[in-house]
Design a protein around this nucleic acid. Structure first.
Lengths: 155, 155
DNA sequence: ACCTCTTTTGACCTTCTTTGACTATAATTA
DNA sequence: TAATTATAGTCAAAGAAGGTCAAAAGAGGT
């Protein structure tokens, strides 16, 4: 692992797993001290690696007894989880956010590595040709279609 | 050895071998310093000697903890077959022909059923949005990109 | 010499991470 | 209730990589 943010990301994901795989509650200052970094680095890690697109929900509270709670979105029901992702995609999606969504599906076992690579390849800027407002729209359209196929292709 | 680029190429290939023959991860600036050249020479070496066609995949990340990772992928007999398919696709391909190509890949064990479904879904008329001359062109572009990934991924 | 192809260099660009000053909010205490 | 303390959030600047592109330099061939 190459940098602090990656290390903290892994640590938090481990914490989630160790506590049943659903949720973890941390004290920002405590983690910052453990890794000897400034507290706001935790905000950076969360904002770049625990977004909705990544499949997480984050709540927090300030003041005495404050906390940050990271919850993994429900993936037990595949149909609900995929519907959730489709909602996130909406009418347009950036390549970056699309990658996050694919990453989330991979981590949740909905697709495997090769499938992830294929889907990501389809959604690259160079594959889609179009200019910007339309490109994100096309990507959204395709990704939602792919999700439908994933949903209905099994069981 | 005639020039810096060749020397660096050899060095990198040696590194790959020394580490099990599959992959190597470098810091661009570090290698540049070792060979006393500008960092961008590494990009030149990679672009001219570690391409897909040469049998390598390159990933990288910028910023703190950045890296360049070169992975060797074996290109067995599959590669000719897939190159053939890419030639068939050309600059444009109908949905029907695209389906035939996917079917062929499925029958030849290059992809499995789920992957075929995903790829076909992407290439449906409804997924691609565009009108006709452009739609076939887009489909061709995407399908060729997908074939590249299938060829040069190998997990 | 002249032309073409490859290599070398460097200025400038983009992306990702780290840090810290300042802000906002909740709980506790006076 | 007001003041104080304990947390977390925001944002922008600085830092740390890697990427691009085109001009200059070198190598071979005719």
């Amino acid at each position: 692992m190459r940098n602090m943010s990656d290390i903290i990301e892994q640590y938090l994901k481990q914490l989630i797993q160790d506590s049943g795989g659903e949720v973890v509650e941390i004290k920002r200052a405590h983690i910052a001290e453990k890794f000897d970094c400034v507290p706001s680095q935790l905000n950076y890690v969360i904002k770049t690696r625990f977004t909705n697109e990544h499949g997480y929900t984050v709540e927090s509270k300030r003041g005495g007894g404050g906390y940050i709670r990271i919850t993994k979105v429900e993936t037990h029901s595949k149909s609900k989880y995929l519907a959730h992702l489709k909602a996130l995609i909406g009418e347009g999606v950036s390549e970056r956010n699309a990658n996050h969504i694919v990453q989330s599906m991979l981590e949740n076992g909905v697709i495997d590595v090769k499938e992830a690579k294929i889907i990501n390849a389809v959604m690259e800027r160079e594959s889609l040709l179009l200019e910007l407002p339309y490109r994100d729209q096309l990507r959204a359209n395709i990704l939602k279609r792919v999700i439908d196929v994933i949903l209905y292709s099994e069981e």
